[in-house]
Design a protein around this nucleic acid. Structure first.
Lengths: 241, 241
DNA sequence: ATTTCGTGAGATACAACGTACACATGAGTG
DNA sequence: CACTCATGTGTACGTTGTATCTCACGAAAT
């Protein structure tokens, strides 16, 4: 059965672009976004509560609800706020543009680790600044003789790889931060007992050999670039571009 | 300053393999994992609360805490529980093994959509069944003349792509389920007003052209395979295997 | 057969969270 | 000066994760 709330509620972004009739207000979606992003940058996503956000803005806990429908809207505003910093240079070839997309996204996520902690559904929302990046990326894939489906498959493949790689990389960094550990060495020494126990079972000989002989276990940038090279090489080979 | 709780707490998995001295108990980690996974399969991850889980098991809300240190442990148990269904066939070449890893993971996640809703840090934990899959994948990359770092970079690249692609795919499906929508058409018609508004701004001409001319927008399987082909092709090209 | 003891489950309670709802307030307009 | 409506306040409710105390029961010991 259809419920009442299915009416086509005006989108968050639609409301934003129409300036409010009385502009004299202490609160605004922009201030909310900036304050929330600042808190999350400094203390992680779990520090974002509606009460904390309100106190940060110097208002009562329920005040921000004049501008957002709920906490999910706040997260959406935060995402769009930081994505304003990500733009791709024009005039590059498709491969350099995809590389800029990947490396730029990585920079952004490493500067705002909470981006990777958002629920996948929060990352689905098409905010203006994310749409702008997608448009830039797609337009760099235009004019290569690809049909629309192929163009999107390239964009999506790069985006999927970047998302997955950063999911992992930032999860490690968030773990470090939450426990107050400083570097990967400290992480490994903390996790060592568990890992040693796993290895003692003798069930994972190949994995164990990796642990013993690998030399770039901590080189996150190299790992990111390696995978990115695979993806871009494969696109070039498969599509002949 | 170092806190007391930094003592090397025995791992969840370490405790599990040592059978409890008095085996007569109504609760067990296995029962907890199975019950929780069943609830999440049927009603989504947000249905998993400690109270709900306890009532599902017919015990008091705090009873499961005998076996898990907190909700995070429950999630870890759930992950391991369903990963028991994922094993890779032996004896295949590296490419077929990586394909089996990707497609098998996709099957698993589509059967248990809540897997993609877990926090990245929950997915970091190395549960026995996930370790087993990783070991199988790595051993298929053995003997190809790759060093340990290259082997892991291949595994990680495939895993990152799969994670990212499924993050997106399952987010759409979770959105459908939560709103009670049946298929992609219904999703698009619900989101149409927002999308039309975005397009009316005229800022996204390439994106708009994609929306008009693409024919495989709903073919999730094709999209997954396309990206996977790029990744595997790139690995083959870059490493000469 | 009775006592002892430890383990597993129950009951109660608390702080923190998101948010619904009714009220106060103060600037702009007549 | 009165009216009005957008904007922020105060209070409260239901739900969550989980700390802590208490209780029951089965096995081992006497």
């Amino acid at each position: 059965m259809a419920t009442e709330e299915d009416k086509p509620r005006e989108s968050l972004w639609e409301r934003l672009e129409r300036p409010s009739p009385t502009p004299r207000q202490t609160l605004s979606p922009q201030r909310i976004a900036a304050a929330a992003a600042a808190v999350a940058d400094a203390e992680g996503l779990e520090a974002i509560t509606m009460r904390r956000l309100a106190s940060e803005l110097g208002v009562a806990p329920m005040a921000p609800y004049r501008y957002v429908a709920g906490k999910d809207d706040v997260l959406e505003l935060m995402v769009d706020h930081v994505y304003a910093d990500l733009r791709l240079p024009d005039g590059l070839g498709w491969r350099e543009t995809m590389r800029a997309l990947a490396l730029g996204t990585r920079d952004l996520v490493l500067r705002h680790l909470w981006l990777a902690q958002l629920s996948p559904q929060a990352r689905l929302s098409l905010t203006p600044n994310r749409m702008a990046v997608a448009e830039q990326a797609l337009s760099a894939l235009d004019g290569l003789g690809l049909d629309a489906d192929a163009m999107m498959s390239v964009f999506r493949a790069v985006d999927a790889y970047v998302t997955g790689a950063l999911n992992y990389e930032s999860a490690v960094l968030n773990l470090l931060r939450e426990h107050g550990w400083s570097d990967g060495g400290e992480l490994r020494s903390e996790l060592a007992p568990q890992m040693i126990w796993h290895m003692r079972t003798g069930r994972y000989p190949t994995f164990q050999r990796y642990l013993r002989t690998a030399t770039r276990k901590d080189d996150a940038h190299w790992q990111f670039e390696s995978g990115l090279t695979y993806v871009l090489d494969g696109i070039a080979a498969e599509l002949g571009i």
